[in-house]
Every structure is written in C-alpha cells, then in structure tokens.
Simulated assay, not measured.
Amino acid sequence: MRKLHIILAAINMSILDDEVMKRAMFTAKETNAQLHFIHTIDIPLMDIEITSQYLGKKIDKDAIKKKIVHKINALNESKSVEYIVNITIGDASEQVMHMAEKIHADLIILGSHSKAKIEDYYLGSTVQKIAEESGRPILVIKNSFQGAYKNILAPTDFSSSSKKSVLFTQIAFKSSPIILIHAYKSLDDFTMEFYTLKSNNEEEYPDFLGRSYADIFKQDVGIRHIDMIKSFSSINKSLLEYIQNKQSDLIVLGSSGSDIVGSFLSSTASYLLRNTFTDVLIYIPLNQE
C-alpha cells in the first residue's frame, strides 16, 4: 500500500488556487508529508522548442515565484507547514506529471478547472489528462476549503483497486469518516425467474446481490457499514443522485491501475469525476501494488 510522504499541489492563478493551497497545506500537516507547489507558465508543447529561449529572457520566473510565495504565506500565517515552490514553462499537464515523477509524489492536488467562477464544475483538459496518464493518486478540488472532510463517500465494486482506494483515503484523511456505497441493478422478473428466485424476496439471496462480497470488503477496510443502492435505471445516475442527496464533500474513486499508456478509469469513475459537484480523490495503484 502506497504511503503519503510527498504531496504535489498544482496552482495556475485561478479562482481555485486558494482552495488548492489550503487543502494541500492542511493535508501535509495532518500526514506530516513534504509539500511541493508547482506553477506552470502554460505554453503549447508544439511551440516550446521555437520560443523557449525567448520566453526564458522575457518571463521573470523569480517575480512570479515571489508572488506565489506571498500568497501561500498569507494562508499559512502560523508558518506551520514548510513547502517548496517550483516554476516551470511548458504544457501544464506534462510539467505536473514530470515534476510528480521527479519528486516521487504520492498525491497530486489540483483544481478542477481555471474558470472564473468556483460554481462552474467543468472539468478542465489538464485535470483529465493528469487523471488518465499520471499513474498517481490525484485529488481534484471543486469546492471551497472547509477544514477536514466530514462526509466522504466511497463507491465500491468490491474490487482490489476499490479496496486500495479506501485504505489510501484512510491514510490521507485519517480524521474523516468514510461511508461505503455499492449500487446494483434491480433484478427484473425475467432474471428472477431464470435464476428461480422469488421476485418479491430478493433479500434472501445475498450472494446474488453481492452482499457476501460486501461483508468481506467491510472487514478488509475496517468499516462496519455499507449502503446498498438498488438501481432501477443507470447505476451511474443512481450513484450521482445518492452523492448529491448526501451532500458529500469528497468522493473516492479507484482505478484498475496504470501502464506505459495511462490509467484505466472505469466508465463509472469517469462519469462521477466529470459530473459530481464535490471534491474527488482518484486512487491509481502502481503496477507492483
């Protein structure tokens, strides 16, 4: 199981920067992790070779770093968190992933977009690319910082990657409660008849509904309860509706791993990442985990 020793927080001079900084400093303090910030002067990758020398002369990276340090210090009044600020030039997603690899980051924290309004939940292309290609856990910030998470929801399919995502969440946010949820399709009359089940008494068949897997999963992660959601239509939409009704402040999603091409996010994880209004932790296990 991956531990949390090094955090990389990406800031891009957007409305969500303060929230990213606050969450990064809070998490670093809670876990005693080393904290790095990265700000990238975003230049399209195809233009870098032509303009990098010119830009290096024209852009005052020290002045930009000084401005960012001043902003961080204003939020870190007690000076309780030490940090390192990195200024880079290039494609934002590539620079974040390169820095994460260089410092062996255990978690990447970044805002969901660079739009002007925090109420705009559009998922930016930089976040999407890092989620798909970084091969590391990422925490996507969509809302204002309110201290420790108070209502973490972890949708699970009882898989190994789902279990690892919950265990990592317990390490990263040790003071926050986690609620497990599992959505399953309601059995139609034909299916019930095919499996010789009584259509009015599904509860008698826990193995068929995955309840025995739920008991094993709960024991493995040390959480006593799991909410079982019966879906009569789309499981993705049922999960999203449940998350919105519960007013969660963080949802936890697991992926099936990564290779040299990228991460494997399930259709459900991708759907919730794009559509939920809450912060999202995507846990991506290394190949050797």
Rank of each mutant, 00 (worst) to 15 (best):
S134C: 15
G135S: 01
R136I: 14
R136L: 08
R136G: 00
P137Q: 05
I138G: 03
I138R: 10
V140P: 04
I141D: 05
K142S: 10
N143C: 01
F145K: 15
K150L: 11
K150A: 02
N151M: 02
I152W: 05
I152N: 10
I152M: 08
L153G: 00
L153D: 06
A154C: 09
P155Y: 01
T156L: 05
F158N: 13
F158D: 12
F158M: 08
S159L: 05
S159T: 12
S160K: 12
S161Q: 08
K163R: 13
L167G: 02
F168N: 07
Q170W: 09
A172L: 04
A172D: 14
A172W: 07
F173T: 02
K174D: 12
S176K: 04
I179G: 09
I179N: 15
L180H: 07
H182D: 03
H182S: 12
A183G: 11
A183K: 13
Y184Q: 08
K185I: 05
S186R: 13
L187C: 03
L187T: 08
D189S: 12
D189P: 11
F190M: 02
F190Q: 07
F190I: 10
M192D: 09
E193R: 09
E193Y: 12
F194A: 12
F194C: 02
Y195D: 08
Y195G: 01
T196W: 08
L197V: 13
K198E: 11
K198Y: 14
S199G: 14
N200S: 03
N201K: 15
N201H: 15
N201A: 10
E203R: 15
E204H: 04
E204S: 15
E204T: 09
Y205F: 10
Y205L: 11
P206E: 05
L209A: 01
G210W: 00
G210L: 03
G210S: 13
R211H: 13
S212A: 07
Y213R: 15
A214F: 00
A214S: 09
D215C: 02
D215E: 13
I216G: 06
I216P: 03
I216V: 09
K218W: 02
K218Q: 15
Q219R: 06
V221P: 00
V221L: 04
G222P: 09
G222F: 07
I223Q: 04
R224Q: 15
H225E: 12
H225L: 08
H225G: 07
I226Y: 02
D227F: 10
D227M: 05
M228G: 04
I229R: 00
S231F: 11
F232H: 14
S234M: 01
S238I: 06
S238P: 10
L240C: 03
E241C: 00
Y242P: 05
I243P: 05
Q244R: 11
N245M: 14
N245A: 14
N245G: 09
N245Y: 04
N245W: 01
K246H: 07
